[in-house]
Design a binder for these strands. Structure first.
Length: 329
DNA sequence: TAATCGTGGTG
DNA sequence: TCACCAAGATT
């Protein structure tokens, strides 16, 4: 892992943000490209937000990218452009919570702060048979205190890396390798045969439906694009003009909501469903065939198809645009 | 506290 | 196929 070959707090910081809720295999190439494009705090702080989001395109949880840049600008102003070394200063930065602050403090500065991520929650809750939900305040507190107590204060970086690796390789979520586990003798969950029951959560995420009807408005070698608002899903990314709804809309309802001149020339070209962690996404794409009369709104712009790769789009839209224009050139 | 925020891998 | 969840944080 390339971020393990450095003590540069900036690079360690970037790697930790990228790896939040993200697998190493998925984040590795993003890390290399991001560091190449923004090699230090100054280059990140002074970049255009659209550039930063472009580097993040396809990685998800896009507030991470915007918070990363905001924190870089914050470091310029509050810490003279030098990454802070105190835990309290580190955790005060946008996008850095308890896990990332402990990770940076230990990996970059060898300070005695125990990381608590999904791996650590799993390892400790099993080994010590903690029968508290890991998404409860009490459960989190118990595990955090335990991790901090267990931490080897003389080599916190190595300890933190080891316990996370242990969770990722041995004490895995499903089919943990208890037969060859070096801690099997002292594991209380294994002793009581409840390894697969731990850890557990108390809350159930209820999924909501969301419907997007996107319009591909095509004028010769240009299409109409716009930017998403700075809140909500895919905040700050580019997209196509659309209608959003919490329920399915009929074709007639869609036509009644749009103010295009040539309603009859709207053709459905693509319909897909996505299951996200917290919502069911239904995306329908329409093609406005004869759109020579279309006039852009203030928040919209005509952009050359050949320039679309310079903008960050949500993954479902990028997939569609890539295929559509590859087959139509 | 609970809801929200993406994408991809896994059994 | 589908629920689960991965180096979590914010509001």
């Amino acid at each position: 892992m390339p971020w393990k070959e450095t003590k540069d707090p900036y690079k360690i910081w970037v790697s930790e943000i990228i790896l939040q809720q993200t697998r190493v295999a998925q984040g590795k190439d993003y890390y290399l490209r991001f560091i190449n494009q923004f090699p230090d705090i100054d280059s990140l702080a002074s970049a255009e937000q659209t550039e930063v989001l472009k580097q993040w395109e396809g990685l998800g949880y896009y507030s991470r990218a915007r918070n990363l840049q905001q924190a870089a600008q914050d470091i310029i102003h509050r810490f003279n452009g030098v990454f802070p070394t105190k835990y309290d200063d580190i955790i005060s930065l946008k996008g850095i919570g308890p896990y990332s602050a402990a990770a940076i403090s230990s990996f970059a500065f060898e300070q005695p702060y125990a990381v608590v991520d999904g791996n650590v929650q799993r390892v400790l809750s099993r080994h010590f048979e903690i029968l508290l939900a890991i998404d409860s305040t009490e459960g989190k507190k118990r595990i955090a205190l335990l991790a901090q107590k267990l931490l080897d204060k003389k080599q916190p970086a190595q300890f933190n890396q080891a316990i996370m690796d242990f969770g990722a390789l041995i004490c895995t979520p499903k089919a943990p390798k208890c037969e060859t586990c070096p801690l099997s003798k002292s594991c209380r969950a294994l002793k009581n045969n409840i390894v697969k029951e731990i850890p557990f959560k108390s809350k159930k995420v209820k999924k909501t439906d969301r419907f997007y009807y996107f319009f591909l408005i095509h004028k010769e070698d240009h299409i109409v694009i716009q930017r998403r608002p700075n809140i909500g899903i895919w905040a700050g990314l580019h997209e196509l003009p659309n209608i959003e709804s919490h329920s399915a809309l009929s074709h007639a309802e869609i036509l009644s909501k749009i103010n295009f001149e040539e309603k009859k020339s709207i053709k459905l070209i693509h319909s897909i469903q996505h299951k996200l962690t917290h919502l069911n996404l239904n995306i329908t794409l329409y093609h406005l065939i004869n759109s020579s009369q279309y006039k852009c709104h203030k928040n919209q712009r005509l952009e050359k198809v050949s320039e679309l790769s310079t903008f960050a789009f949500p993954k479902p839209l990028k997939n569609f645009l890539d295929i559509f224009f590859m087959n139509n050139i």
